[in-house]
Design a protein around this nucleic acid. Structure first.
Length: 465
RNA sequence: GUGGCCAUAGCUCAGUUGGCAGAGCACCGGGUUGUGAUCCCGGGUGUCGCGGGUUCGAGUCCCGUUGGUCACCCCA
């Protein structure tokens, strides 16, 4: 392997592999992405959210303001050659959202309901369910449906309605894809309700953040270790077990805790989340919900309700997560604004859909993505119709129809039919002469003979839409 | 960013103490019978992730590297 240096591989040659944690999307992959994006949009619009978007990169400061300098190592940040400004590819949407809202807060209706879906970037080490470039859907509800001078109790109920509406939208999407409460659990907690309850349990306010941290870390430690640390807050081993289990049933009929939960006497917690439970019940989604004291989520800025959506088996990372962040808009220079929202990534979602057999494949995928041709034009093999194929296809396209033909040299009708099926075409047009064609409906196998060529667009359009 | 495991055809994988690159499924080309099928003939489709090294000879052994994956970190 010695030889002439001029023939040796160049040491400066670049790698042509896609960057780590990114994906190349071939046609069927792109169709899957479109399927998810369209389902996100459709659910958002159905629930009354307006679509927005922002830049895919922002000033680096926008992210350090909220998350601290430590965030920088998790970002793709850069400086333009010759420039002085630091930028970062967006790792999340909330700062952009808060910035956009703050800029126009005075003229925006309350509540303002916005959604977006697009690419995001995080410089983390990729692993199952987590990539460096991914799609994320965000839906946020800013402001409340009551006046600013309403009583605190009225506002709390308005917050609960907003929280439930956002959760319902997320569930509405999952339901539309065919998922149900037996496959998906929405785990809900409530920071302020938890605090109110902790005070009733004689845990002083300053220690709440510490306890939240402990609850958040529960899954990563052994039960005994968890119980031991919980004892430092005055909880008995018996009570630790209830924490360990995590789930708490709260219903409208029985706002107090049930059964073994009484060990913890969650009355104060239950009372605090009662408005949320009522709103979730009214929205018809309570059967998806588990209240779970161990759901804390990034301690940084959530102020009330927090939730995570998990596949019921608990094997995957969270499908979605969100909560109430009443202090964030003012952090970005806007008026103090109550807000609640969530984000859902495409990576874990896709894994769950594949596992549940709900990710469409083959022609079903093409159909749901609107990629199926209306007509696949083939010749019957006669010389005069062979030369007619391209012009018939062109004529159909001119009429706004999606028309294709085979690029094979064969005149074998069976093989050409197979091509038509493979691309998911609705109809096959077999040219029989310079004047007429046979039109076959591939869905039901029916076919119509002697169709005049100039009547094709009309026939196809009326049967297609 | 730290550590472990993995990488052979489109897919699932086999490949012996180092000795000509393989199987099944899938796929591709041509042909017959005018209709998604059947039948006939033909094709292995490959950068053994990549780059070095040891060797007469490397898919196999060694070093490095890239990617994936799992556990940490983090999870906005």
């Amino acid at each position: 392997m010695s030889g002439n240096p001029q023939n040796a591989p160049s040491k400066t040659s670049v790698s042509f592999a896609a960057p780590k944690g990114t994906r190349d999307l071939y046609p069927l992959d792109a169709a899957k992405r479109r399927f998810i994006m369209e389902a996100w949009r459709s659910a958002s619009i159905r629930f009354g959210f307006d679509e927005i978007d922002g830049p895919t990169f922002e000033h680096l400061d926008l992210y350090t303001v909220k998350s601290g300098e430590g965030i920088v190592s998790e970002l793709f940040s850069f400086r333009r050659a010759g420039g002085d400004d630091d930028y970062a590819l967006r790792p999340e949407f909330t700062p952009t959202l808060a910035r956009m809202y703050a800029a126009q807060a005075r003229q925006l209706q309350r509540p303002t309901k916005w959604f977006m879906a697009g690419p995001f970037f995080r410089a983390e080490r990729p692993q199952r369910g987590r990539l460096r470039e991914f799609l994320q859907w965000n839906a946020d509800y800013l402001g409340l449906d009551v006046p600013d001078d309403a009583t605190e109790q009225t506002k709390d109920e308005a917050r609960a309605r907003a929280d439930a509406e956002v959760i319902s939208c997320c569930i509405g999407f999952l339901r539309e894809l065919g998922l149900g409460p037996s496959q998906i659990r929405v785990k809900v907690n409530h920071r302020s309700a938890l605090s109110r309850w902790l005070v009733s349990r004689n845990v002083p306010e300053p220690r709440h953040a510490e306890l939240f941290g402990l609850l958040d870390a529960k899954a990563k430690m052994r039960p005994e270790e968890f119980a031991q640390k919980l004892a430092a807050f005055g909880f008995s081993p018996q009570q630790s077990e209830v924490f360990q289990k995590g789930l708490i049933r709260v219903t409208i009929d029985n706002p107090a805790s049930t059964g073994e939960d009484e060990v913890l006497d969650l009355t104060f917690f239950s009372e605090a989340v009662a408005p949320l439970v009522r709103a979730l019940t009214a929205a018809g989604v309570l059967d998806w919900i588990d209240f779970d004291l161990s759901i804390v989520r990034g301690l940084a800025y959530y102020t009330g309700m927090v939730f995570e959506v998990h596949e019921a088996g608990g094997k995957e990372r969270a499908i979605a997560g969100g909560g109430r962040y009443d202090g964030l808009v003012s952090l970005f220079g806007g008026p103090s604004t109550p807000a609640v929202g969530f984000g859902m990534g495409d990576v874990v979602l896709s894994l769950v859909l594949e596992e549940c057999g709900l990710m469409p494949t083959g022609t079903a995928l093409l159909q749901r993505s609107g990629l199926c041709p209306d007509a696949f034009v083939i010749s019957n093999g006669a010389p005069e119709t062979l030369s007619l194929v391209t012009s018939v296809v062109a004529g159909l396209r001119e009429q706004g129809l999606h028309a294709r033909h085979s690029y094979r040299s064969t005149t074998n009708i069976g093989k050409l039919m197979k091509d038509a099926v493979a691309c998911g075409s609705r109809f096959v047009v077999i040219l029989e002469s310079v004047a007429v064609a046979t039109v076959k409906n591939l869905a039901d196998g029916s076919q119509q003979q002697g169709v005049p060529l100039d009547g094709l667009p009309h026939l196809l359009r009326n049967s297609c839409v």
